[in-house]
Write a protein that binds this DNA or RNA. Structure first.
Lengths: 324, 324
DNA sequence: ATGAAAGCGCTAACAG
DNA sequence: CTGTTAGCGCTTTCAT
């Protein structure tokens, strides 16, 4: 910056003003400085700027998850895509931090100005992390609700979606409707279970649930096998996401059951492949990308000193296809 | 840090030594300092450290892609997961930057020490970006090969995989084998096309290719429809990834063709769902997660002053299932 | 084995 | 509208 100033015949402060788009200068001066920056290939040093201004212009994406291969979930990816796009548009960097231990490190070390925390794992641990995040006092948003958190949360009508889906199955005459999910819990998954239970309860039907293993098709297949071997097997299985549903369908096929005639199967999320499998999956779609954008907007608005009202709950869409 | 030093009764330098694990001190001193850090809830300020040491301990993941929803591809996600895990294990942060314009900004602004560039888009633009990256002189690795680049590249035997897959189809008696891909090109995709062409050429069969639209199942369906309407339609279609293949299968179904009897279909990548669709997809699996790890290891080894030999080309695996 | 001093590149505050 | 001064929190260098 000193070199640029020297070359343009101004002080470093003026260069700083040009870089940061602060007015207060003649067009001619600005141009001279711009030319000098160009000639010298100058870029601001984000480190020095951050040290002095106490703002890094970066956002942290904090992924609370014990699975090391954390990004495998297509939903997570679309969230990050949404967050990343907004960050880019608003001139912010995006730092990804995952795991359980040093989750808040980016904030503590002042690498980022604010954060979005993506919640998974058992409720007690989630709450503990949210508390710690709150205590830091940085602008932040949660992805997935946390009970009694003061931080704004981006949510979708998962509960309602699951309720409507279960109601649909019951209306079709199913009386034994089971629910399968992976072992690791998410806020959104818990809402789906709650919606499922509510719908069944309203009709006096007892819930049957399995929550084992990873979020893979294999796990879906195993849980379905377990359910179908029971004395009074379900005639419909709701899976907590589409990949699990795929496993359920394969399990049914292998046992000679027709889908949806002998066993209705539904998923959740409307992944890319869901419309193209056979039978096409009945599922619930969530505007995940838009939700990621909302979370990032929330945090950046606060960082940039804008009003920023918390977003409404995002609507979900019931997608009725062939499988249920 | 000054506060910690005061509380522990030492100089700031000693605190710095403790934080950075430099030896040269009594156990007792270290403990006193550690206690003081704990009591005050001290964390190093990454910004200040970065300014002084000229090292940020962060890695950039530079995603050259014009599609704003850049993370939609499951393969990209697994790469990032691999990169992210290694970064975390080695004490580095991971900064994601995407798009076309300010792709090198994290490097220029000294937000990161090194970078991994994930290449996509047309070859000429890819090369231009690689050149610019090289010119910066930072430790970096490429994901996907770039012609005549001096930077180390992480690659897989895509060409060989496609060649073997095409050979398999030809050996099964197919004489009209087509290839479909999305519009945006990747190095890995180009290798797949090359392998396909080589296998056909070796048997004197003319290639038939379509490269339109996004990397979606819909696009696969459209390209397949186009191919199957031709005078002399293919009896086998190789898709450049599994999602496209799904679309091809649906197209076949809708036209009353049985897969694989009337039309053989293959994919690439072995996505999560591929073993669970009907018919199960014949495909080629790539160790994408391991490749992401390798890319990050390459860069961090260089940053940490370790020898770091470039990784070998990763092997791919032909996965023969029911669809071809 | 520990301490003192200097300064990384930038921006805030204020002076001119 | 532009310049001067000071200092962000840390690490490097050199001294003890």
């Amino acid at each position: 910056m000193r070199d640029v100033a020297a070359r343009a015949g101004v002080s470093v402060q003026t260069v700083s003003n040009v870089v940061n788009g602060r007015g207060h200068m003649r067009e001619q001066t600005r141009e001279r400085v711009a030319a000098a920056m160009d000639a010298l290939g100058y870029s601001v040093d984000a480190t020095a700027r951050g040290l002095r201004s106490a703002r890094t212009r970066a956002l942290g994406f904090l992924l609370l998850d014990d699975d090391p291969r954390y990004l495998a979930d297509p939903m997570t990816d679309m969230v990050i895509a949404g967050v990343g796009d907004v960050a880019r548009e608003r001139g912010y960097g995006l730092l990804i931090q995952s795991g359980e231990d040093g989750l808040l490190q980016p904030l503590l070390e002042r690498r980022v100005d604010g954060a979005i925390m993506y919640l998974s794992g058992e409720p007690a641990r989630r709450v503990a992390h949210v508390r710690r995040l709150e205590a830091l006092g940085h602008p932040a948003a949660l992805f997935g609700d946390a009970p009694s958190a003061s931080l704004p949360a981006v949510t979708a009508a998962n509960r309602d979606g699951a309720r409507r889906l279960a109601a649909h199955l019951l209306a079709r005459g199913h009386t034994r409707v089971a629910f399968v999910a992976g072992r690791t819990s998410w806020p959104m998954i818990e809402e789906r279970v709650a919606g499922y239970r509510a719908a069944l309860h309203a009709r006096g039907v007892a819930p049957v649930e399995r929550c084992h293993g990873p979020w893979s098709a294999e796990a879906g297949e195993e849980m379905a096998a377990d359910l179908l071997e029971a004395a009074d097997p379900p005639t419909a299985i709701m899976a907590a996401n589409d990949l699990l549903a795929l496993g359920v369908i394969r399990c049914a096929r292998r046992r000679g059951l027709r889908v949806p005639d002998d066993l209705a199967v539904s998923g959740f999320n409307d992944f890319d492949f869901s419309a193209f499998v056979d039978p096409a999956l009945t599922t619930v779609s969530l505007p995940v990308y838009a939700m990621g954008r909302a979370a990032a907007t929330l945090v950046i608005d606060r960082l940039d000193g804008r009003p920023a009202s918390p977003p409404p709950e995002f609507a979900v869409e019931l997608i009725l296809r062939a499988s249920a």
